[in-house]
Design a binder for these strands. Structure first.
Length: 499
RNA sequence: GAGCCGGUAGCUCAGCCUGGUAGAGCAACGGACUUUUAAUCCGUGGGUCGCGGGUUCGAAUCCCGCCCGGCUCACCA
């Protein structure tokens, strides 16, 4: 049962009426819906939609529509999962209670109702209300019922309004949650152990990016918010975990656009005794499993493009596709730096003189190749100078055993056979330090503690990172990363006094 | 950081080009209505036109600066 209504408070509220809404003072109702008895709107629809048969139900939610007709009224109450119609008749609840409802309850309020299910003349499953309670008052008007809320700034800054008003938005975030839970299920069933590694790290390494810096007062040292969990997860492989994964936030102190948010969610997983070829197959399995579980189909539409997630995916090597798109071969990119620089300027790449050799190659690839990879495509065998943590290719000293998977023109997966030779790893870090001295701000940091771990022996291992936000974008057909992050990074609104 | 676009009632928008004291729908408020669902019908109230400055007799409208947001580029796996 609902806890008892307190008539004195009702009167108080009714007496003050709309004044209470303006003064911002409100006698809160302490009525509660007792635990375990209220059922969700979604479960009622699921259970009784075919046959309501006067089932007694008790539900709570936000009143989002209201149609009053004198001696009866209709409305809908809603939560993130769905909405259900309620029907209130004067001759069912009594004259007093009916009057109370119309006088104290407005669209936007959180209410609880109790009643029996029936179907209206138009066939909609509806609760014929016998008892109701105001659970929380909404002091502000809700966004418009028909057009919802469109102002993107309001949608991001006050996401709760977006969620109340826009069904599509609710769907996206529910799908996001499902995607993450299906990924966990997939990995757990295959023997992976989920772990948590430090977000605050003394060395920001494991990726090429600018970190956020903070300070620990007690340890009296600077710490960095992680740009990647990679080096810690590999330490766990050294420690004997054969299969580990972590899903969590990474932080990069860089620009904001439709595919970048300063904090974003990554899945990283590592498997001992696998190589990058095993990971390609595993990635195909994972993505087709996701498509089946989430969408029930291998075919998706992303921003107008039909994308087929049925394995196997196209595999093409880094320099093969570069040659296809630019006519220049690996030799040109890797061995003839001066000619490359000249040519890069000719094709319109900016700030070439400020870039390192590696960076120019990376830029050229982004410019000529990335956006065109609509169907799932593994780009394999990257140049070594772009991949300081990946193992040298078994057939080519210039390359590493690495792949990235592109879908819808976006990089979604990055993976490689891990470099497990501590001597070579130190050399690669030193190479990065040189790049840093030459002005590459994103070059990777030396991590001596990680090298020490490698010196104890890391088994041959393959590791992979999946950008969860971008994956959600593709599976929900959204054009901007902000549409799949509940509270995307926004500029602080300046205090008017300080302007 | 650059270019383009936007900011008008609680929400969605019109008005701006061509300067003359701000408008619609929904929401709110009052009334009618016992199967409605963008309910309907009658009536009422509601504005720092993002902020600041300039031009002008007069600025939502023209000009300049700033703030916030979006897109594209740059940056960035």
């Amino acid at each position: 049962m609902f806890s008892s209504w307190e008539p004195e408070r009702d009167k108080e509220y009714i007496l003050e009426g709309s004044l209470i809404r303006k003064d911002g003072k409100l006698a809160l109702f302490d009525a509660v819906v007792s635990e375990g008895e209220t059922v969700s709107i979604a479960s009622i629809k699921e259970k009784y939609d075919f046959d309501p048969k006067d089932e007694k139900v008790k539900i709570a939610g936000r009143l989002v529509t209201l149609r009053q007709m004198g001696k009866a009224l209709f409305g809908h109450i809603q939560d993130v999962w769905g909405r259900i119609q309620i029907y209130l008749r004067k001759d069912t609840v009594g004259e007093e209670r009916y009057k109370e409802f119309t006088e104290i309850i407005d669209v936007g309020d959180i209410i609880g109702v109790e009643g029996t299910l029936f179907r209206t003349n138009t066939g909609e499953l509806t609760v014929n209300v016998t008892e109701f309670v105001l659970l929380s008052k909404c002091l502000n008007p809700l966004p418009e019922k028909w057009h919802g809320i469109k102002d993107v700034e309001v949608r991001y800054r006050q996401r709760y309004l977006d969620l109340i008003a826009n069904e599509e938005v609710r769907r996206i975030f529910i799908t996001r949650s499902k995607i993450i839970s299906v990924i966990r299920k997939f990995l757990d069933e295959r023997g992976f152990v989920e772990v948590e590694t430090p977000v605050l790290q003394p060395v920001a390494s494991g990726a090429t990016a600018k970190p956020f810096v903070t300070y620990h007062n007690y340890l009296e040292s600077e710490l960095y918010l992680r740009i990647a969990p990679e080096l810690y997860l590999k330490r766990l492989i050294v420690g004997g975990f054969p299969k580990v994964y972590e899903i969590g936030k990474n932080f990069r102190n860089e620009g904001v656009d439709t595919t970048h948010n300063p904090e974003f969610t990554m899945l990283e997983f590592y498997v001992a005794y696998w190589d990058y070829k095993d990971l390609m197959e595993f990635t195909e399995e994972l993505l087709s499993f996701l498509a089946r579980e989430i969408l029930g189909s291998m075919k998706i539409t992303y921003q107008g493009n039909e994308i087929d997630l049925t394995p196997p995916y196209r595999k093409v090597s880094y320099f093969e596709i570069l040659k296809e798109k630019t006519g220049k071969d690996k030799e040109f990119f890797l061995k003839r730096e001066n000619e490359l620089r000249k040519w890069a300027k000719e094709v319109g790449l900016q700030k070439v003189d400020e870039m390192t050799h590696a960076k120019i190659i990376d830029k050229i690839f982004e410019h000529f190749v990335e956006g065109e990879l609509i169907q799932p495509t593994f780009i394999t065998d990257f140049p070594k100078i772009l991949s300081p943590l990946a193992k040298t290719h078994r057939n080519d000293e210039d390359l590493v055993e690495r792949f990235e998977l592109f879908i819808g023109g976006k990089e979604v997966v990055n993976a490689y056979t891990e470099l497990n030779d501590p001597v070579e790893q130190r050399e690669r870090f030193l190479q990065q330090l040189k790049e840093k001295e030459r002005g590459d701000e994103e070059a990777m940091e030396m991590d001596e503690d990680f090298i020490k771990a490698l010196e104890f022996g890391m088994p041959p291992t393959a590791g992979e990172g999946i950008g969860i936000d971008r994956l959600v974008m593709i599976l929900t057909d959204t054009p901007s990363i902000r549409e799949v992050i509940l509270f995307p990074a926004m500029r602080k609104i300046k205090d008017e006094v300080n302007i």
